[in-house]
Computed example of a mutant assay.
Amino acid sequence: MLLKVALLFAMLIQIGAAIIAVSLIRRTRFNGSWILISGGFVLMAIRRLFDFSTLFGNAPVFQKEEVNSWLGIFISILIFVGLIYIREIFNLRDRIDELRKENESAVLSAVIQAEEKARQKFARDLHDGLGPVLSSIKMGLSAIDLQSLDQQNKLIVQRSTSATDQAIVSLKEISNQLSPHLLQNFGLTTAIESFEDQLLGNSDIRFQFEATIGGDRFSYQVEITLYRIVSELINNSLKHGRPTLIQLSLSQQTDMLCLTYNENGQGFEPDQLSEHQGMGLENIRSRVKSMKGIFQLESAPGKGIHVTIQVPAK
């Protein structure tokens, strides 16, 4: 009696599973693998019906065993083939994910390259257009004979000359930030040292920079990406971190360039950044992602920040 109840329960479960499987065929858009697996569920339900019916019939034992054997064979074949199809589906999905990531990196890289080209063009336009105008103004002011002027006009000329000098210096700084000539001419190490000297030279913040790449040169895309990342990290620290010590190291390990950044500022909870505070870090992530690199950030309130970045040394 207990066996009959158990077989009845198993039969109902198998029939229910078969009905659900068949009903999902349309929702899977008649996927071949799901049709095969649904067929396996249907045969399993038929097998349970056969097992249950033999308890009340007088079918010969060899017929029961033969039918069960054939049903088991067909079930195994259908499920095996269905699983092969499912494996191919998962492989295809993984490949699609890889292609999507590659496309995202390619799009980010194209956007960043377009941005750098726009920066370079703007820097050239400033230097070639506004630079000569300011130089002409300075030459004109320098040609004025101050001895022939009264005190008031002499003061006006001196102030105008000073303002022109400041404008020329500012123009050079802006042009260099847009398209750093030291990076193009002398490489990443020299450009970072110059940037640090301009930004932190007159501050109380200690800056320790260690580079083991020496004067090695890399593609301009790699160098400008790392230069922008370092600039963003230092600027973020000055705006939000208030550190007294910044440590930066740059090295090459086989085919990867490794950048490590540490500062002892206020720190923060990485998952609780405001949109304004997180914009700089998001820009860094985008740049690293465009290079198919690795970005790791560790921080906590009062613990400063630790950043590790690895990008291919193309």
Rank of each mutant, 00 (worst) to 15 (best):
165 D>K: 08
267 G>K: 03
60 P>T: 02
199 L>R: 10
200 L>M: 04
20 I>F: 13
67 V>F: 06
175 S>D: 04
75 I>M: 14
174 I>D: 10
236 N>C: 06
190 T>M: 15
312 P>L: 02
22 V>N: 06
118 A>D: 09
72 G>Y: 15
291 M>C: 05
2 L>N: 15
179 S>E: 07
51 D>G: 07
138 K>R: 13
83 L>T: 10
88 E>F: 09
217 R>I: 06
170 S>H: 10
281 L>M: 06
107 V>G: 03
73 I>E: 14
200 L>Y: 10
192 I>D: 03
134 L>D: 01
62 F>Y: 14
68 N>K: 12
191 A>Y: 00
25 I>G: 01
57 G>A: 15
10 A>E: 12
214 G>S: 05
228 R>I: 09
150 D>A: 04
248 L>R: 06
142 S>H: 13
166 Q>H: 13
138 K>I: 01
297 L>T: 00
45 A>S: 08
243 P>S: 06
150 D>E: 14
306 H>C: 15
68 N>Y: 11
131 G>I: 06
289 K>L: 03
269 E>D: 14
39 G>R: 02
298 E>W: 15
276 H>G: 05
250 L>E: 03
237 S>W: 02
51 D>M: 10
152 Q>R: 15
162 S>Q: 10
135 S>K: 14
115 E>T: 05
42 V>K: 06
244 T>L: 14
82 G>A: 02
189 T>C: 00
271 D>T: 13
79 I>W: 10
